[in-house]
Write a protein that binds this DNA or RNA. Sequence first.
DNA 1: TCAATTTGACCGCT
DNA 2: AGCGGTCAAATTGA
Length: 285
Amino acid sequence: MAMEEKLVINELEQGRELAKRLISNLKHTSSVESSKIMISEILRIYQNAILMLSFKEDDKNILKRSREIEDKDSKTLSKKRKLSDKKTEEVKVFVGTGSIDDGYCWRKYGQKEIHGSSNPRGYFRCTHRFTKKCPAVKQVQRSDEDPSIFEVKYVGTHTCNNNSTSPKTTATSFSVSMMVEEGNRVGLTEQTEDIKPTKTEEVMISLEDLEYKKDIFKTYSFSNHETENVGGWKSNIFQENLSPATTSGSGMTSEIAIAVEDWGTVDSCFSSLANIIDLGQDLWS
DNA sequence: TCAATTTGACCGCT
DNA sequence: AGCGGTCAAATTGA
């Protein structure tokens, strides 16, 4: 089975497990906030799975095209610039709500309006590009379909071995911040947009929730197998810095930003969840 | 003061 | 010609 397929299955399994927990949570606890977090994460997981499948096809096309160009160039010895070698390197797509910090230091070097897309694409290179000749580049674009989701494409791998942050999973406590805009729309703070949160709700998560939260967010480790920084993605969500550009972080207390488009539709999701999870009717009674 | 970000210009590809 | 990606001067902010 292909790696991508395993990842998709893993995503879906996590969504299923999370939904089970949610049902249990709804039955036994009155923690509305933690339920909201779970719903948000379930939705993100399924969005991830869908996008992973669609991007898988895109990656195939990129590789196919670059091979064709390579063949052509070797035959014609054209002096025209080849498509960047970076294109032939592994392209990784990360989709997530909240922080997209991956533990590396990035510097923004450009931003472009992309044809057919309502959101601009930001271009970032590794801070150590010149000092350590690190070729890693990433592109960050807010999803058109779901503005709460960032699509991050990685091109090239880090040779600097200089991830700036250590995993924060040892945190003993952290807070969850929900940026609530006027009109009940929940959004993210991100530098390339002019979203100004008008209200911040903070919820302190207890230690006993930590273990469960770590499970929730472990999906952030997907697809970043390029690096030895296995905890890199996992640590992402333990940082509040939503700027996709320069990332840094320290300290034991961090924040998570969670974006949910419309809590008004959450109730309607519950019936769908029943179809997703094979738990039987008794759970809902 | 210096590092990071912004943004218009430029370049190569299709 | 139009598009995406990068450069680099100007600007910002710590």
